[in-house]
Structure formats: structure tokens, C-alpha cells
Nucleic acid binder design. Structure first.
Lengths: 220, 220
DNA sequence: TGGCAAATGAGTCGAACGGACTATTCAGGC
DNA sequence: GCCTGAATAGTCCGTTCGACTCATTTGCCA
């Protein structure tokens, strides 16, 4: 209400002094208030608890405690603190871990100070920033994981057999399946025998598991 | 080898003539060769087949055939054609569909022509570009989907029961499990009875399915 | 039109299954 | 020292399962 613009309180966590000093200088020029510097993850967690900065610029690779774990601890102790992770390379596994740790941004270190400043301001307003390189990397991962979709309607088992399988998966016994489908137990058993052959299973448990693996039935 | 720099052949697909003309002008200024314009998805697919452009700038929302489906068809017919999707808003569902369709970039329409030009050049060299807004949106989605991690070692079933479950899941019958674990069939049945209670199952099939759902056993 | 796959039904038989009840041994915690 | 839970083992009994063989009806397609 009073309009007095309070500058954003920033904390740096990186094990390279030179990089910290460079960051401190450029972030100060961008109008941020650098209130503290930590040289490793453990120090960062402690310092964050004392200083409660608005935003932490945290390197991923640090001694004692890596940036991901440090971020997790900081967020656990004080969820209001925003953490922006800095990383050397667009490593897919690290990125996944970083995402889970609850950071508000993921930047590769070769980005400009303007980009960092933007990311800090976005983080304060609750937004998330991702370096293009990291975004693309994540995208490829998602694309890699996703394609397991096989729209080919191979239909290994017949419609009826599929119904039987789903009911079995839902917890029905042979008599119950027969009742549900208004057919005799014999017929159900015949369908099952056919299913066992087709799915290379020797009992209903294996058949259902195989069907789940093949996406023929759902687990719910 | 001859050094003659061939410009990138571009195709536009958007149902708004004005936007197409604006794009054509600015892309031409950026040195691209705009070889065609389509006003809807179906036209885009046909035209792509005839012109085989290097890159298509494809709007997501179009009459006849939406951009996602059109992209899928174009990539199916000619995987070498790169498609960059343009979208109005960072809609999560559309983004997911777009990712699956195999495009090489996803830009929100308020980005600059320089950004579009960069994305086109990246697409030609096989890279993927994502608008920051879309990246953040996707990130939130991943974060939402991921947390279901429960590292709590609740150990619903005992070690031994888990072994039995895994063997059952691997296709063993009660006698076989007994043999494998060097215990009597009776004991296996005791374990199973205990498992049924704990997992609220009434037979081995349900028990294994529940165990799979709970991540107690693996499906290979 | 002839043949083939799907869906239905049936019989027998031995093995496997699941429930109910009981029991012993052993380790860890109160 | 007592109690609990895990792991072991047993009996009895009725049900369910899966293998094997066979038969009928439908619908489709070559």
C-alpha cells in the first residue's frame, strides 16, 4: 500500500567463489539484494533457515549436499523460499530429480544475466522458468516415454475373451463371470482355455498379468 | 560443397489469412522461402505432400482437421518434414497431444518473429524448441504427476510374503513356490492366507494385481 | 457354397485352491 | 518374563481350476 518498492532478497549457493562473486555483482546491478552466499549444500540449507531469502540461486553440483537435496530440505523447512537451480549441462536425470525437488526454475549456466533476472522475478510471482535446452531435453524424454502407444488393433484375443479377462481382473471367479455374462461356466472355461493359449499363460493369474502388460485390460 | 546457400523452404498453415500474410512477410524478411499457405488442416496435409517443405508452421486450432492431427498425418507420410506448432494459449492437454504428434517445436503466438526464426533453424538441425510458458506448463504437469512417490517403507506384507507374491506373479503355483523356497505347501498357503487378508484379496490373482498396483511386485 | 473362426455348451478327471482350526519355534520389545 | 508377530507345519473339506475331448450354431469371406 505504501508503494515503497522493497527489493528482492537473494541468496547464492555455489561452490565456485568466482562464479558467486560474478553473480553477486550482476544481480546487484539488476537491483536485487544479495543477502548471503553459501559454498556448499549444507551451508545453503542452514543459511536459508536464518536469512529466509526470497529466492536462492542454487548450483546443482556442490560438495557436502548436492543442489537437489539442498533444495528439497530448504523447501521442506520453508516452502515460501523460491529456488532456482543452475546447472552446467542439460542432464536428463538431474533435471528429473530437480523437478521433483520443488524448484521454481532450471537454468543452464550459459544463459545471460538478463535471463537469470527474469527467472528470479518470475519465481517471486510464482512462475517457473526453464532454459530452452532443458525444456527440449525434457520434451525428448517425455516423447521417449510416451510412444509406447500402439494404436495397432492387433486384437490378440476376441471381444468375448477380452470381456472374460476384464471380469477376472476385476475379481470375479469362473462362476461369477458366467453369471455376469449370462453364459455357462463351461463356456467361460472354454474362453479361458483359448486365452491361455493365446497369451501363453497357464492360469488366470498369468493371463491377467499378461493382459495388463499388453494393455488389454485395465487395473481398476 | 558448392557453397550455394539454399534457403529453408517454409509452409504456413493457419486459418487466419491476416496472420498468414504477416508471417509470410516476416519470415521472408528473415530469409526463409515461403513456398505455400494452407487455410485448414486437411489442406495442409495435402499441400505438404506435394510441396515437401523443410518446415511447416502449423496452427493448433484449425477447421477440418486440427493442427495436432494434421501434424500426425504429415509426419506419418513424410517424417523428414519438421512441424512447429503455434498455439494461442499454454493449454496442458493440447500440449501433451502436440508432443505426441511429433512436432519439433511449440510456440505461443505472442512470441517474436526472431524467436520463430530461431525455432525454424533449430527444427531444421533436428532440435526442439519450446516457449517458456509452455515449458513451465509442462513442468507443472510433470510435477503434478510425479509426486505419487511414497518412499515410506510401510511394508504391508512381510519379506517372506513378498517373496511368495513375487514367485506367484512370476507364474509359480503353490507347490512350485514351496519347492523354490524350500518350505512346505502348507506354509505357502499360510502366507497366502495372510496376504489375502492384508491386501483385501480373495485369491492369488487379486492379490498379485493389488501387489502390482501397490508396487510390491514387478511385472518384469 | 464350403470352410473357418467365434461363441456357445458339455463331460470327466485329477490337481490346485482357499477357508477354518490348531500348533510349534524363535526373535524382539515392554 | 511375558506377549506379539513372523515363519514354520499340519488336517479336513468343499470348491475351483485347467487339460482333454467333443458338439452346435452363427456369421463371414473367399
Amino acid at each position: 500500500m505504501m508503494g515503497e518498492r522493497v527489493s528482492i532478497r537473494l541468496m547464492l549457493a555455489d561452490d565456485h567463489r568466482m562464479l558467486r562473486e560474478g553473480l553477486r555483482r550482476s544481480m546487484t546491478e539488476h537491483g536485487f539484494d544479495v543477502v548471503g552466499e553459501a559454498a556448499d549444500g549444507a551451508e545453503a540449507v542452514d543459511m536459508a533457515g536464518e536469512l529466509t531469502p526470497d529466492v536462492i540461486l542454487m548450483d546443482v553440483t556442490m560438495p557436502e549436499l548436492d543442489g537437489v537435496e539442498a533444495t528439497r530440505l530448504v523447501k521442506a523447512a520453508n516452502p515460501a523460499i523460491r529456488v532456482i537451480m543452475l546447472t552446467m549441462h542439460a542432464d536428463q536425470e538431474v533435471l528429473a530429480a530437480a523437478i521433483r525437488s520443488g524448484a521454481s526454475g532450471y537454468l543452464v549456466k550459459d544463459c545471460s544475466t538478463e535471463e537469470i533476472a527474469d527467472a528470479i522475478r518470475s519465481a517471486v510471482s510464482g512462475e517457473t522458468t526453464l532454459s530452452p535446452a532443458l525444456a527440449a531435453s525434457m520434451l525428448n524424454e517425455v516423447r521417449k516415454l510416451d510412444p509406447p502407444e500402439q494404436p495397432e488393433e492387433d486384437r490378440v484375443v476376441t471381444k468375448r475373451e477380452e470381456e472374460v479377462l476384464q471380469l477376472i481382473a476385476d475379481g470375479c471367479s469362473t462362476p461369477e463371470v458366467a453369471e455376469r455374462l449370462y453364459i455357462s461356466q463351461k463356456t467361460v472355461k472354454n474362453h479361458l482355455a483359448s486365452i491361455y493359449q493365446k497369451l501363453d499363460a497357464r492360469d488366470r493369474t498369468q493371463a491377467v498379468l499378461q493382459a495388463v502388460r499388453m494393455g488389454i485390460v485395465s487395473l481398476d
